[in-house]
């Protein structure tokens, strides 16, 4: 397992203002103050493994001997041998500060800044993997992001880390919730085509949407007949 802790965490105030759809004039001082607080509380920890795809079933795929059940994952890994399971957290401090805040607006801002920090970590890992493994294009999937790959698949994903799991700083509770709460997990894999789970998700008005919903794509994955 590899652990990266020194993820550069310079959050850009303009980007925060844009993502939260704030009025720049009115909110700049607040945002600058919040970013200063947040940056001192964010403790990024990116853990990943290099794992290998073995057998594939109809709707299953075996990675390092562990079976995952997901048609989409299985299709996405058709030509793939090497994959990169990851667990990312920014630690407990930011979420504690947010929860302790009696000011709901401040809580909301801090929560969102934390989510953005997790996004930065994911992007950083992607770049790192491309460089380290000489890969041109990567895509990722996360348990729970699609009905086809439910959040219960966190269990096999976490099992890929074996003994090293405790070093990631993240635990799964019995309801499959990662603790610290501000954590994300998934699997990066080399790909030729761009792929985002969002393309297969029809949820409207999602603040986290990375790509438009693409009904046609469902056919490719055989998800249209169900």
């Amino acid at each position: 397992m590899r652990i990266i802790k020194n993820v550069p965490m310079k959050l850009n105030p303009d980007k925060v203002i844009k993502e939260l759809r704030l009025n720049k004039e009115k909110s700049l001082t607040t945002v600058l103050e919040l970013l200063e607080t947040a940056e001192s509380l964010i403790q990024p920890k990116v853990s990943y493994e290099v794992a290998y795809v073995a057998k594939k079933g109809k709707d299953t795929v075996k990675i390092n001997g562990v079976t995952f059940s997901s048609r989409v994952l299985r299709v996405n890994l058709e030509k793939t041998k090497k994959v990169f399971p990851y667990i990312i957290t920014i630690g407990k401090s930011l979420e504690s500060e947010a929860s302790a805040s009696k000011d709901l607006l401040r809580q909301f801002y801090l929560e969102n800044i934390g989510d953005m920090a997790l996004g930065i970590c994911e992007k950083y890992l992607e770049k790192h993997l491309k460089k380290q493994h000489g890969l041109e294009k990567l895509a990722s999937m996360s348990p729970g992001s699609l009905e086809d790959w439910p959040v219960t698949e966190q269990k096999p994903l976490f099992s890929l880390f074996g003994e090293n799991l405790r070093l990631t700083g993240v635990k799964l509770n019995e309801h499959m919730l990662m603790i610290p709460r501000k954590s994300v997990s998934g699997l990066y894999f080399p790909t030729e085509e761009t792929f985002f789970s969002c393309q297969l998700c029809s949820r409207e008005n999602c603040p986290a949407r990375k790509a438009p919903y693409d009904e046609e794509l469902k056919k490719k994955y055989g998800l249209d007949e169900e």
């Binding site: 947010a98 929860s99 809580q107 909301f108 309801h175 919730l177 603790i179 709460r181």
Partner: peptide, 8 residues
């Protein structure tokens, strides 16, 4: 509910 810590 129990098991979930999301509250915003």
């Amino acid at each position: 509910v129990k098991g979930d810590l999301h509250d915003i």
